[in-house]
Amino acid sequence: MSQVKTETIQQEKKIAKKVKPSHIIIHILLILLALICIVPFYIMIVYGTHTNADIASKFIILPGQALADNYQYMTENINIWRGFLNSFIIAGCSTALTLYFGALNAYGFAKYKFRGNKVLFWFVLATMMVPQQLGLVGTFRIMYMLNLLDTHLALILPAAANAFAVFFVKQFIDGTIPNEVIESARVDGAGEFKTFNRIILPMLAPALAALGIFAFIGSWNNFIGPLVLLFSNEKYPLPLLVQLLQGYYGTNYGVQYLGVALSVLPIIIVFAIFSKRIIGSVAIGAVKG
């Protein structure tokens, strides 16, 4: 009897939980907000498959048949795949430099008590407050002096001095790598750099993975840097090619939509696969920061 009673109460509870109007409203609001987030991307993909005449005349919901034409037309002036390659080269190399030299520097600050350690570390932290645009004109000048203008190196080399990376990795080293590890390596006769490369670096993997995601996204999306430092279309990364679409196809919206879609779709795919990791790294970065 009492069993039956508790069961009915539980059922009532369940039912009450299901129909609680505030919960439904919250879900509806969440879904609405999610739709607002998604609709522009949907429009981008669908409109990329329509002719300019279609786009100018009515609101479109379903895909059209002009995808091949638009693509054909776009490739006359813009090699988007070349842009992907360039973006990969720039973002990949920048990330590698950021990670390695960031870790090297962080390790130096964390584990060696040389004179001026604290002062120099504060200096590194202070540079985080300085906006990148402050030296924009001077950067243009030094790249010219070093003969690096219009080269990918101009965008890659500065990545070796990323203050946030130093800060981030040092926090991690302070928290997870005991001095004993280094001491025992020294006892085994390993040199200081060998110790770092062979023993420390692998231990930093979790921090570097999170940091790498940040660094890669940041470099991939960089716009003003290449805008100032690169001249040749064939060296342009994606964001600049997207901007070029406006120049070449100012009146052809179908082609512009398609170009934007092609620049965003791979990001959607990568995000769909790695979203947990990416979001996780953002959370770690924030909590550490």
């Binding site: 999306n221 964001p239 620049s263």
Partner: peptide
């Protein structure tokens, strides 16, 4: 994580 330039044009 979407390129800001792409969003602006879109």
């Amino acid at each position: 994580i979407v390129t800001a330039a792409s969003l602006g044009l879109l």
